[in-house]
Measured scan of single mutants.
Amino acid sequence: MVIEDPKTNKLIEVEKLPDGTYKVTIYDKKTGEKKTITMSKKDLEKLLKAL
């Protein structure tokens, strides 16, 4: 799943891993910076609600 946040000009890509956690990659379209973090479903839901 890919989500675009027009306010921050970032793309957020979410991928479910076999162990039940989620790999979240955040791309900054302005700088080209890429950050990848792994989080639980509960933390991911908090992140998505904040957008």
Rank of each mutant, 00 (worst) to 15 (best):
K34C: 13
D28P: 00
D5L: 06
T21Q: 04
L44D: 00
D43C: 10
E33C: 07
T36S: 13
K23H: 06
K49D: 08
G32H: 08
T21N: 05
D28S: 04
M39L: 12
K10G: 06
P18H: 13
K23Y: 05
L44M: 05
Y22F: 10
L48W: 04
D43I: 07
K35H: 10
I3H: 03
L48I: 07
E13H: 11
I12M: 03
K42H: 11
E15L: 14
K29I: 11
V24C: 03
K10S: 13
P18I: 14
K42D: 11
T36W: 12
T25E: 02
V14N: 01
M1N: 13
Y27R: 01
K23S: 05
G20C: 13
P6G: 08
S40A: 06
M39N: 01
S40K: 07
I3D: 15
T38V: 08
E45H: 14
T21K: 04
V24W: 02
L48P: 00
L44I: 07
E4Y: 12
A50N: 06
E13P: 00
K46N: 08
K29T: 12
T8P: 01
L51Q: 03
L51S: 03
G20I: 01
M1Q: 13
V2C: 10
E4L: 03
K41S: 15
K10F: 15
K42Y: 15
Y22L: 02
L17M: 13
M1C: 15
K49R: 12
I3N: 06
K42G: 14
I12V: 05
K41D: 08
L51W: 01
P6W: 03
P18E: 11
K16R: 12
T25V: 07
M39Y: 04
L48D: 01
E4G: 01
Y22H: 02
L11S: 05
L17A: 10
I26V: 13
D19I: 06
I12F: 14
L11R: 12
G20F: 09
K41Q: 10
L17P: 00
M39W: 02
G32L: 09
K49L: 14
K10M: 15
K46Q: 15
Y22I: 01
P6A: 07
I12A: 03
K10P: 02
L44A: 09
L11H: 06
V14Q: 01
K7Q: 12
L44C: 04
E33K: 05
T25S: 07
T8Q: 04
K34V: 14
T38M: 15
I37C: 13
K46F: 14
P18R: 02
G20V: 02
E4D: 10
L44R: 00
T31D: 07
L11F: 04
I37P: 00
V2G: 07
V2M: 01
G20K: 05
K16N: 11
E15G: 07
L47M: 13
M1T: 14
I12G: 02
Y27G: 02
D19W: 11
P6C: 12
T31V: 05
M39C: 06
V24Y: 01
T38Y: 15
K49V: 10
D43Q: 11
L51T: 07
T8I: 04
Y27Q: 02
L47N: 00
I3K: 01
S40W: 12
K41V: 10
I3L: 02
V14M: 12
I12T: 03
K41F: 12
K41R: 14
K49M: 15
L47A: 03
T38H: 06
L51K: 01
E45V: 12
I3W: 01
L11K: 05
K46S: 12
K49N: 15
K7S: 14
D19T: 09
K30L: 13
Y22R: 01
V24I: 07
P6F: 08
K35T: 12
T8Y: 06
V14I: 08
L51E: 03
K42C: 12
G20N: 13
T31S: 07
N9P: 01
V14Y: 09
K35E: 12
V14C: 03
K10A: 12
G20P: 00
Y27T: 07
T38G: 07
K16G: 15
V24L: 11
K16E: 12
E45K: 04
L17V: 07
T8K: 02
K42A: 12
I26F: 11
L17E: 05
L11I: 10
K35Q: 15
T25F: 14
G32S: 13
T21L: 11
I26D: 02
